[in-house]
Design a protein around this nucleic acid. Sequence first.
DNA 1: GTGAACATGTAACAAGTTACATGATTGA
DNA 2: TCAATCATGTAACTTGTTACATGTTCAC
Lengths: 201, 201
Amino acid sequence: MNVRTLCLGILTFKEASGYEIKKMVEEDVFGHFIDASYGSIYPALTKMMAEGLVNVRAEEQAGKPDKKVYAITPFGRQELAAALLVDPAKDKFKSEFMFQIMLQEFLPKEHVAQIYQSQIEYLRDEIEKIRCCVGDHQVNHPSMSFVAGFGEASLGAGLKFLEDNRAQILGDETPSLTLVDGTLDHNKDQIEGQSKDQKNA
Amino acid sequence: MNVRTLCLGILTFKEASGYEIKKMVEEDVFGHFIDASYGSIYPALTKMMAEGLVNVRAEEQAGKPDKKVYAITPFGRQELAAALLVDPAKDKFKSEFMFQIMLQEFLPKEHVAQIYQSQIEYLRDEIEKIRCCVGDHQVNHPSMSFVAGFGEASLGAGLKFLEDNRAQILGDETPSLTLVDGTLDHNKDQIEGQSKDQKNA
DNA sequence: GTGAACATGTAACAAGTTACATGATTGA
DNA sequence: TCAATCATGTAACTTGTTACATGTTCAC
């Protein structure tokens, strides 16, 4: 699936400028399973404009530069439906973090501890982001809330695994802090971390 | 992270040919968080050979064509350690399936039902693959089993979500088949699918 | 008056994929 | 003999990213 289809899909939810599409891909529910940069979004929009898949309207904004608001046309919807009909490519999950963990013996202990903590915080942030979407934003769309639920479930399980199995990688030198709660069932090392430097930008 | 580092990392576990590296990336625990094709592996290996990061040994095989077995050199390990020291890029999860679900209203019901079932089967296969790795293969490496555990946890949660929330997307017209087991706790629609056509190659 | 957020766009570049090209060997 | 698996390699091509280039308005 290409940026074209991606933009077309987003535009079915609401009209948006290239800038706004990029923001959605970064922050909204979309962000968990798609990706795109300005360098691909703007040219795609321009080209689709020429092909009649979208139309533009210049919008003046008080206190902000003008923006070009794109909307999908009936022809665009047709194209989208066709593009959507091909069987989806299988999921692709890339994790440099996991690669580093796999090769942790080549890394200084402190580095491993640091990326481990960063990963936990990153996952917490992502989950929080999804919850925000479901809360304040309009994820009224049933499909949207389904997708959000899926993301929360997957990321949540991953996070829990990292929290529970910390000792497996980091040894028992867990930061001496308070336990999350009293309901420990088996071999838990649940520790609430405190650092705040999120290095993976 | 590039294919170079990927190959170097894999070669720390065992010597391998380009063909074997590709197979590992497809089938082993690696497969869940990295990706590479022949077209990138072979050139990377050749280049690293010239740079002294790996060395080769031609191995004759009974009943099979000869293969070029690559091994990492001390210099290669040095390079790997350096490459590993940079903070990992954040995880990237791409799912065309989720994109299609989000836009399901543009798709025929049957298509949605079909990709939904395919996705469930795909996830089951992936989890099974991980379990096989842990079982027969040597995932003796503690880091390996950790990574496998993480994959199993994440994928398992995603699969469970799909199984439990089928009705949200597909409605209640679940195929009339036998329930998986009797231990239903809350709102489960766990159905054992029977189709076998896995379309996402 | 300076940095941050808003806003659009392009061109050079990186990186890897696909398809092609080749060839051995085995088993149905 | 034909498909499948093993095995290596290259070149054209896609695709998208990064960095650059430019400009507005606001808040501190």
